[in-house]
């Protein structure tokens, strides 16, 4: 694990929310820089060494989406979007522009810190040292041997189910849009076939969750994406 203190830029025009995020992050010993406008955010991005950006889309002097697009032309810095907008389309647009995750307002300290940890872990992730064995709940997955056990019993997965499972496991904690998963597992001709994905995620829940109708690991953000949680 990286011992250096992570430096996080918080871009949010609403002062109370910015202050709350700062307090929550500093309590966890992160270094925090605040920006209340598009321009000060741009300056901070260009002049400081950052590990992550928490970004509100609606800024007084610019569109957060543009900031993400601009950033993505030269940087892979993780971006967590804060959204007060209700429409799914806005979240999808932000993810398509290159955001790594989003959080709908209002959100709790717990939710915020969990997302931040997942994104930072992800950006420092080094696959060669990670073990191919992944455990969650009572399930054990061996990505190398392609074996899955639940409560000590072997679970039969089809090749597509296994492919989908390993993709979700390797991106644990991150949002995975329908389009992305469909393209990775079924190929680009299937990117609109959401029902395939839903049926196969349903299979994984049936086989690996204790209560498939109230899953704890294979989570759905309705209309947008899936998120695997260890």
């Amino acid at each position: 694990m990286n011992t250096q203190i992570s430096h996080i830029l918080v871009v949010e025009d609403e002062q109370h929310i910015r202050h709350f995020i700062r307090t929550a992050l500093e309590n966890e010993s992160y270094q925090v820089t605040e920006a209340g406008t598009y321009h000060s955010a741009l300056q901070a991005i260009q002049n400081q060494r950052l590990d992550m950006i928490i970004l509100d889309l609606g800024l007084p002097d610019g569109d957060g989406l543009e900031l993400i697009k601009h950033l993505r032309t030269w940087s892979k810095l993780p971006v967590l979007v804060l959204s007060a907008r209700v429409s799914d389309q806005d979240k999808i647009k932000a993810l398509d522009a290159g955001a790594d995750d989003y959080l709908s307002k209002p959100f709790s300290t717990g939710e915020l810190l969990a997302r931040v940890r997942a994104l930072l872990r992800r950006s420092q992730f080094n696959p060669s040292v990670e073990s191919p064995l992944i455990r969650f709940g009572e399930v054990e997955v061996d990505l190398l041997q392609r074996k899955v056990n639940r409560k000590g019993q072997a679970v039969r997965l089809t090749p597509i189910e296994f492919h989908l499972l390993s993709l979700l496991l390797l991106n644990a904690g991150r949002v995975m849009t329908h389009r992305h998963l469909l393209r990775e597992v079924w190929g680009s001709t299937y990117v609109e076939s959401n029902h395939y994905l839903r049926v196969y995620v349903g299979h994984l829940r049936q086989k690996l969750e204790d209560d498939p109708s109230q899953p704890r690991h294979f989570l759905t953000e309705t209309g947008i994406d899936y998120r695997f949680q260890l």
């Binding site: 609606g58 907008r85 209002p106 300290t109």
Partner: peptide, 26 residues
């Protein structure tokens, strides 16, 4: 509607955040 939603949600989020900030006090 979307502006209204944004304008109502922002102070609500502040309110929620302020309550959360209180819990974080040392």
């Amino acid at each position: 509607l979307s502006a209204l939603s944004h304008d109502i949600r922002t102070p609500l989020t502040s309110l929620y955040s302020l309550a959360e900030s209180l819990s974080l006090l040392r």
